Amino acid sequence: MRLLPWTTPDGGPCYLSTDDPGSVVSRLADDIEEAQLDSGRGVLAGSEAVLADAAAGDRAVRFALTRAAESLRDALRVADSRGARIDQRPKPMP
């Protein structure tokens, strides 16, 4: 079962049951994961800029932290999903 990079309407995890990494849903999930990681890179750069700005106000810092938390949640979900798939790969014969 592959953990997908989106949740149910009530916030629960979504899983895909397939052995085909090239299926339409698998490719969609790969694309969304990559978009989430790209977004996280941008959020990191923006957050670092806010933190480096001594004049940044509370609203800017709170906004940056909120976006950083969202991006971290996405990145951890991607890591969990990819890690689980690595663990499921067949082990090579000795």
Rank of each mutant, 00 (worst) to 15 (best):
M1G: 14
M1Y: 12
M1V: 13
M1N: 11
R2Q: 12
R2D: 13
L3A: 07
L3V: 02
P5T: 06
P5H: 04
W6M: 05
W6L: 10
T8V: 07
P9F: 05
D10V: 01
D10L: 00
D10N: 09
P13K: 01
C14A: 12
Y15D: 04
Y15M: 02
Y15N: 05
L16K: 01
L16I: 03
S17A: 03
S17T: 04
S17F: 00
T18G: 06
D19E: 08
D20W: 07
D20L: 07
P21I: 10
P21N: 10
P21F: 13
V24I: 12
V24T: 13
V25G: 08
S26N: 07
S26D: 14
S26M: 06
S26R: 03
R27T: 14
L28P: 02
L28Q: 15
L28D: 14
L28I: 10
A29K: 04
A29E: 09
D30K: 12
D30R: 14
D30H: 11
D31E: 11
I32F: 04
E34G: 04
E34A: 15
E34T: 11
A35W: 07
Q36C: 05
Q36G: 01
Q36L: 08
D38E: 00
D38L: 09
S39A: 07
G40I: 02
G40S: 06
G40C: 01
R41W: 03
G42M: 00
L44G: 00
L44D: 05
A45R: 09
G46P: 07
G46W: 06
E48F: 09
A49N: 11
A49T: 12
V50S: 12
V50W: 09
D53W: 11
D53V: 09
D53F: 08
A54C: 06
A56V: 11
D58F: 02
R59E: 15
R59N: 14
A60Y: 03
A60K: 06
F63G: 12
F63P: 03
F63W: 10
A64L: 13
A64E: 08
A64W: 11
L65K: 15
T66H: 14
T66Y: 10
R67P: 02
R67G: 01
A68P: 09
A68M: 09
A69L: 07
A69H: 01
E70F: 08
E70Y: 04
S71R: 11
L72S: 03
R73Q: 10
D74I: 00
D74F: 03
A75E: 01
A75N: 04
L76V: 01
R77Y: 03
A79Y: 06
D80C: 00
S81T: 01
R82T: 13
R82D: 03
G83K: 13
G83D: 14
G83Y: 14
A84N: 14
R85G: 09
I86Q: 14
I86E: 11
D87V: 03
Q88Y: 05
Q88F: 02
Q88P: 00
Q88L: 10
P90Q: 11
P90E: 12
K91S: 08
K91G: 07
K91N: 06
K91A: 14
P92S: 15
M93P: 13
